[in-house]
Design a binder for these strands. Sequence first.
DNA 1: CATGAATGAGAATTCATTCAT
DNA 2: AATGAATGAATTCTCATTCAT
Lengths: 229, 229, 229, 229
Amino acid sequence: MNLHSLNEGSFIIQGFTGCVIKKPDKSNKSNNDKYHQILNAAIKVFAEQGYHKATISQVAREAGVADGTIYIYFKNKADILFNFFSYKTRRVFDRFKGEVEEAEHAEDKLRNLIRRHLGEFQRDPNMAVVFQREALQARYIDEAYIKDITKMYLDIVGDIIDQGQKEGSIRKDFQSGLAKRFILGAVNEVINTWVVTGIKYDLVTMADPLVDLYFRGIGAGGREMQKEN
Amino acid sequence: MNLHSLNEGSFIIQGFTGCVIKKPDKSNKSNNDKYHQILNAAIKVFAEQGYHKATISQVAREAGVADGTIYIYFKNKADILFNFFSYKTRRVFDRFKGEVEEAEHAEDKLRNLIRRHLGEFQRDPNMAVVFQREALQARYIDEAYIKDITKMYLDIVGDIIDQGQKEGSIRKDFQSGLAKRFILGAVNEVINTWVVTGIKYDLVTMADPLVDLYFRGIGAGGREMQKEN
Amino acid sequence: MNLHSLNEGSFIIQGFTGCVIKKPDKSNKSNNDKYHQILNAAIKVFAEQGYHKATISQVAREAGVADGTIYIYFKNKADILFNFFSYKTRRVFDRFKGEVEEAEHAEDKLRNLIRRHLGEFQRDPNMAVVFQREALQARYIDEAYIKDITKMYLDIVGDIIDQGQKEGSIRKDFQSGLAKRFILGAVNEVINTWVVTGIKYDLVTMADPLVDLYFRGIGAGGREMQKEN
Amino acid sequence: MNLHSLNEGSFIIQGFTGCVIKKPDKSNKSNNDKYHQILNAAIKVFAEQGYHKATISQVAREAGVADGTIYIYFKNKADILFNFFSYKTRRVFDRFKGEVEEAEHAEDKLRNLIRRHLGEFQRDPNMAVVFQREALQARYIDEAYIKDITKMYLDIVGDIIDQGQKEGSIRKDFQSGLAKRFILGAVNEVINTWVVTGIKYDLVTMADPLVDLYFRGIGAGGREMQKEN
DNA sequence: CATGAATGAGAATTCATTCAT
DNA sequence: AATGAATGAATTCTCATTCAT
């Protein structure tokens, strides 16, 4: 099965009018190769230069193709970024779901999610850089755009919270919308810091302490103390 | 005392070589007016278009001045953003410190900080949009740049954690570096969501529930209970 | 008598339409001062930067006046250069005539001319730089313009040649037009070299050897040898 | 052999940092054509307007290409002028050397040089105009720049003088540095006059009379006669 | 499909000149 | 007269995109 077919046509998005994920090309290997060749080159260049500063020529050079060739596989420059999010990044996030399901309890599920999240970003730092940097940009500018991915993530987290609340391992006295952002925001900041400070240390080791903070918070007291307040 | 004088010259930053905060202008009202007129116009345009997409002409039109006038008050386009961060945003963050000191205990201090943070961003949504979107960008591209502001924030949080640990209201068994980012990341995500979803609801009401999550986490039990699992 | 009155209105020149030498201002001393103050500042700045690279602001700063003040004394930027040539430089060249008349014989007259020429340029290197650099420019671009000064010089040389031919000290078998340019070209190149190499040595000492070359040429032979050819 | 290859990379010059002579283009005819097409268009426009007044758009229009095309072949506007000097003009001056060597005696060598010099400039009046006008400019502004070409010329003249002194046809009692400039200055002035007065008469006919002046000077007598005065 | 030269719209920036004070 | 802030026309240069080969 072609990798592209999963997502094909599934994004109808403001601000990216006309951006469509390329047809899978009937398993035409060489075409598919070029698509990935260019996409990966673009991610590398975007990571180094930033999307705006990067030029099509740089991407072409990095991909070892001519400038014009890029327009055979992508509608325009924005379409490359669009494909990065809707195809490449999407696949990574899709796999999170499976990872979560391998655990039974809410806390373990969240731990698996965070581990996987950090692990995937650590495995592909260029992706990490581009995603962290441009996703927010895209969220702000293009209205819908990256929200699907964010929503997918928040939904996974939401399901975990639901389950935890049923299990009794997670409190019920908070807005789940807020809790989801609280979880997403913290991982993102951890990833940003890792990227900004130079991708030096082992990101995945942050997973357990982070999940601990999610569940227990920074507070010293038990529930009793809370109630005293 | 002139507002600018606080920060004048205090930023010497890679990637922004040559960008300097304008002299306070001897209380010359009209000069100072134009400076703010342009800066605010720029923030509005940057908020709507994004820094890169925004043009000097748009900013000039919004400010009601000629294109060339902008270059009397700012060295170049980047210098406008630089001034936004080093003067305008800085002032906001500077005030956080005072706010924190008004409370006695760590949890109240953190609550004040978060309230103030959300309150200031709610008060000036254009600033919020530009800050949230471009600060991350800037962190990635310009090496030092916005890190000062981030560091300032993290330091305030760090002090609160220290105090809480002494008071006994905050646990000691976590890396404080991680906890600080955990706190910053969550507020940022809350602000981002508020901005991205259209600045509709009251952001400040998020402060208390958020601080509650910081302290208590999402977990239902005390530590003991977790271990029982 | 006012210094300006000599030349006032005497230049009607293509490419400098509208450039007129300012009225002498009824001996209004302060006005006249500013005129010279600005003109000299301009010459200094033009010498350092070149006419095109120099800005009105630089000239104003050097002159210690506001930008706008320059437009009270000069019609526009080109008018400053025009005044440099038609007033300042002109006066220098005017004095050459007198110098020449102090000698009796052609060779001495030429020697006096060249000495004075080199001496005046050495005395005022900024003038030298601007004149040598911009005069040619002006000759090419503005059709008439600087030709008056060049013509004045060539006329003086022409008179010397005429006299020398009558006296028998100068040959008659050459086109006097060519000989005049031959003389002017050589001095200019000597001055250019002096300027370009950094105005270090004593320019006036070049006068005698140069006049020797003018009269005797580089050839070793006497007239007899010439005739053998 | 490609014409460009002679000079490629041979100029590393202050004030023209980053200006490089285009690769010879593997005899790619169309590339080479565009390079010359633009260079010649530029020379024409520079001749008419002067380098500073000329705009890239004018050059593009004259060359029949889009503005952007110019930047494919030249780094920037200054690079066009740089290529004019380092490639186009250089080639002309390079050929002088060969011309000189075809004669045996010093006087004939100098005559050949001057003839060739005048001939080449007459053949390409646009080149003549731009060279005469901008070379001086460049000498003043760019420190090293055009000095190479001037030096090349002066060296040729210097060699001729040396030879003549050995042969006995040239006097030994003058500074050869001065004599070289005396020769260069005079030709330049002759060319300037020809250009400024409208490129009407036959410039090459000036060669013989000029060389006669170089050798014999304007003086009527032999050396002896002078001393009698 | 692939190429890469050519395009030209668009953006930042400069600076001579004006004019209200 | 003097000022200098404001102007906006003009210019250089970039780069996404096209299209003939």
